[in-house]
Structure formats: structure tokens, C-alpha cells
């Protein structure tokens, strides 16, 4: 824990069951890949916290280091990194994401 921003990330991850680090907001995504994950989560009816990394350059760098993942968006469920856009879409398509949400007691509607 060398980066001071990591504390804030840890806090957001413990305060929210599902967190999406993204470019833009869930209402106004600024990137097609972020928009795609918002769409997946919305289709499933999952309540999630979207965190816009574009408004905070220090967070943008820190989340890549924290996750050891060079791209955005990044989806976390119950503090566990799930993946980026490609992985989330694959998992939603074959039902793995729904299984993960069920296993972690995260409510969803679809």
C-alpha cells in the first residue's frame, strides 16, 4: 500500500457491492467499452456504483496499479476484480456473471 489513493479505492470497494471504474458516468459514459459494461449491468438490473476516473487523474493511474490491469473499465464485485469489458461481456453471455452475483449474494433482476 504505497499509493495513498489505494485507501480510497479500498474504501469504495468495501462500501459498495458492485463498483465499476469507468470513463464518464453510468448516465453519460465517455468510452464505448465503459458504455458496454454499463449496458450489461443495467440489463441484469444490478445496482452498482460507477466511478468516473476521468475527473481524477490520480485515481486513473492508481486503479491501474491497484488492479495490475492497464485498461478501463474495471469491474469489481464484493471487492474482487472480475475483469474489463471483454471478460464481463463473455461472462454475461454464458451466465458466469449471473452465477458470480448469486454466489456473492448480490441481487439482480434478470
Amino acid at each position: 500500500m504505497t499509493n495513498p489513493v489505494f485507501e480510497r479505492i479500498q474504501q469504495d470497494l468495501s462500501d459498495n457491492a458492485v463498483v465499476l471504474y469507468m470513463k464518464g458516468t453510468p448516465m453519460f459514459p465517455q468510452c464505448g467499452f465503459s458504455a458496454a459494461v454499463v449496458q450489461v449491468l443495467s440489463d441484469l438490473g444490478v445496482k452498482f456504483k460507477g466511478i468516473d476516473i476521468l475527473v481524477d487523474p490520480s485515481l486513473r493511474d492508481a486503479i491501474k496499479e491497484f488492479t495490475n490491469w492497464p485498461t478501463l473499465p474495471q469491474l469489481y464485485v464484493k471487492g474482487e476484480f472480475v475483469g474489463g469489458c471483454d471478460i464481463v461481456r463473455e461472462m454475461a453471455a454464458n451466465g458466469e456473471l449471473q452465477q458470480l452475483l448469486t454466489a456473492r449474494n448480490v441481487p439482480f433482476s434478470a
Binding site: T71, G83, G84, D86, I87, M91
Partner: peptide, 9 residues
């Protein structure tokens, strides 16, 4: 999946 992507990254 995560391991595979990390290998490529």
C-alpha cells in the same frame, strides 16, 4: 480469464 489477459498485457 484474468490470467490470460494479464499474460497478453
Amino acid at each position: 480469464r484474468i490470467e490470460r489477459h494479464r499474460m497478453v498485457h
